[in-house]
Amino acid sequence: MNKFHGIFKQLFELQLPGTEALDLYEGYYAQLYEALTSRDNYDIPIVMEQARITGGPVLELASGTARIVKHIANAGYSVTGVDISDDMLAIARKKTEMLPQRIKKNITLHKGNMIDFQVDEQFALVILTATSISLLKDEEEVECMFNNIYEHVKDGGRFVFDLLDDESFENSSLRMGGIDAITLNQSPIPKQFILMGEQRDANHSKRALMNFYSEVIAEDRTYRFFGSTEKTYFQYDAILPIIKKTGFKIIQIEKKELAKNEMIYMFVLEK
Score class of each variant (00 low, 15 high):
residue 22 L to S: 05
residue 22 L to G: 05
residue 22 L to F: 00
residue 23 D to M: 06
residue 24 L to I: 04
residue 27 G to L: 04
residue 27 G to I: 03
residue 27 G to Y: 01
residue 28 Y to E: 00
residue 29 Y to T: 03
residue 30 A to N: 01
residue 34 E to Y: 07
residue 34 E to Q: 05
residue 34 E to T: 05
residue 35 A to Y: 05
residue 35 A to F: 03
residue 36 L to H: 04
residue 36 L to E: 10
residue 37 T to N: 08
residue 37 T to C: 06
residue 38 S to M: 10
residue 38 S to K: 08
residue 41 N to D: 14
residue 41 N to E: 14
residue 41 N to A: 13
residue 42 Y to G: 05
residue 43 D to I: 08
residue 44 I to T: 14
residue 44 I to A: 11
residue 45 P to L: 13
residue 45 P to F: 11
residue 48 M to G: 14
residue 49 E to V: 04
residue 50 Q to H: 14
residue 51 A to Y: 11
residue 55 G to R: 03
residue 56 G to D: 01
residue 57 P to H: 11
residue 57 P to N: 12
residue 58 V to N: 03
residue 60 E to Q: 07
residue 60 E to K: 01
residue 61 L to H: 02
residue 62 A to S: 12
residue 63 S to E: 09
residue 63 S to G: 06
residue 65 T to E: 07
residue 66 A to N: 00
residue 66 A to K: 00
residue 67 R to D: 08
residue 69 V to Y: 01
residue 71 H to S: 03
residue 71 H to D: 12
residue 71 H to Y: 15
residue 72 I to N: 04
residue 73 A to V: 13
residue 75 A to F: 15
residue 75 A to Q: 15
residue 76 G to K: 14
residue 79 V to N: 01
residue 79 V to L: 00
residue 80 T to Q: 05
residue 81 G to W: 09
residue 81 G to C: 10
residue 83 D to N: 02
residue 84 I to E: 11
residue 86 D to S: 08
residue 86 D to Q: 07
residue 88 M to D: 02
residue 89 L to S: 00
residue 91 I to H: 10
residue 91 I to A: 10
residue 94 K to N: 15
residue 94 K to E: 15
residue 94 K to R: 12
residue 97 E to I: 01
residue 97 E to V: 06
residue 97 E to M: 11
residue 98 M to T: 14
residue 98 M to S: 14
residue 99 L to Q: 09
residue 100 P to K: 09
residue 101 Q to Y: 12
residue 103 I to T: 15
residue 103 I to M: 12
residue 105 K to R: 15
residue 105 K to N: 15
residue 105 K to L: 13
residue 106 N to H: 04
residue 106 N to G: 03
residue 107 I to F: 00
residue 107 I to P: 01
residue 108 T to W: 06
residue 108 T to G: 10
residue 112 G to I: 04
residue 113 N to R: 07
residue 114 M to Q: 05
residue 115 I to Y: 04
residue 115 I to E: 12
residue 115 I to D: 03
residue 115 I to W: 04
residue 117 F to L: 06
residue 118 Q to N: 08
residue 119 V to M: 06
residue 119 V to W: 08
residue 123 F to W: 13
residue 125 L to I: 04
residue 129 T to L: 07
residue 129 T to I: 10
residue 129 T to C: 07
residue 130 A to I: 06
residue 130 A to F: 07
residue 130 A to T: 08
residue 131 T to P: 08
residue 132 S to H: 08
residue 132 S to Y: 04
residue 133 I to W: 06
residue 134 S to M: 09
residue 135 L to S: 10
residue 136 L to I: 06
residue 136 L to R: 00
residue 136 L to G: 00
residue 137 K to F: 11
residue 138 D to K: 11
residue 138 D to R: 07
residue 142 V to R: 00
residue 143 E to A: 13
residue 143 E to Q: 09
residue 143 E to F: 03
residue 145 M to S: 09
residue 145 M to D: 05
residue 145 M to W: 04
residue 146 F to H: 01
